[in-house]
Design a protein around this nucleic acid. Structure first.
Lengths: 150, 150
DNA sequence: CACGATTCAGTTGTGCGCAACTGAACAGCG
DNA sequence: CGCTGTTCAGTTGCGCACAACTGAATCGTG
């Protein structure tokens, strides 16, 4: 198999392997990995609009709307229209959502152990993947941008 | 955000960025990326059981069964029970499935360009990700294996 | 041979992710 | 002010991915 396919496959496999680890460690809290990501961002920023969440997590409203709906049903976040701009919806963690922070505080160390990597290696790999992602994103714009020229 | 979350997020983002590139390049052929992976393996091996496909692609029957069903409907693969072992189902590409190989032959070079990486860098990154995946897989066995001890 | 355990593919249910679209709110410009 | 185009979140439809399960075929052991 060609190298590009191997690399892409390796990225996918690693992604799903990470999912499996988080599935196990987050199972007790009832969280999925994307929901955990949303909480990580909200714990850090307090409250964000759906758009800002999407920019940080690289997700669009088609993914976030139902995801946030489930999290609101579970009682972890609240949503309300921004009175300054009624198009926008502001998401913030509830007391229960803030409380989850304590329940899942052991998750990071489990994950670090699971990687079998040093902190330096993890940082380096993260940076390489960021560069790769940026290159791929730029390529998508080039490839589909030219084709979709109306 | 903690480093492990950053690394995991970077892997996920790269995975989805790759998806986007393949979505564009495979669009004309009507293939999705997982379907393309199945064909890559079948082009190389001629025919494989669902189990063997799953082992190579790291997918279970819950994912492969409907995926192969769609590919059979599209006329790219055939499925038949193995007469030597009626539990097993053998999958092989049809003439049309073999013909797709020519239609998507430009996909790899598009993808290589899109990564913005040298061949050596791609190989190195692939190897690092394989190690990471192996470590994570082992961790899942440890974490859930001990918990599920009946 | 018989019978319990295992190995298969397939089904069901849930959640993520994206394309394409809808409808409401807003911004800019004449 | 009114109209047009844009920016939002949300919905629909589809495909991938996995857990948990079903049912049929096979294997192993007595």
């Amino acid at each position: 198999m060609r190298l590009d396919a191997q690399l892409c496959f390796a990225v996918h496999a690693a992604s799903r392997a990470f999912d499996s680890v988080y599935r196990v460690t987050l199972r007790e809290a009832g969280l999925t990995y994307p929901q955990y990501l949303v909480l990580l961002v909200l714990w850090e920023h307090g409250e964000l609009s759906v758009k800002e969440l999407g920019q940080r997590l690289r997700l669009d409203s088609g993914t976030l709307s139902p995801l946030l709906k489930r999290m609101e049903t579970a009682g972890w976040v609240e949503r309300r229209r921004d009175r300054a701009d009624e198009r926008s919806v502001v998401v913030r963690p509830t007391e229960e959502g803030l409380g989850l922070r304590e329940r899942v505080c052991i998750v990071p160390e489990h994950t670090v152990e699971s990687t079998g990597m040093s902190i330096a290696e993890m940082g380096e790999l993260r940076d390489r993947l960021k560069e790769l992602t940026d290159s791929l994103d730029a390529a998508v714009v080039r490839l589909s941008g030219t084709g979709a020229r109306a």
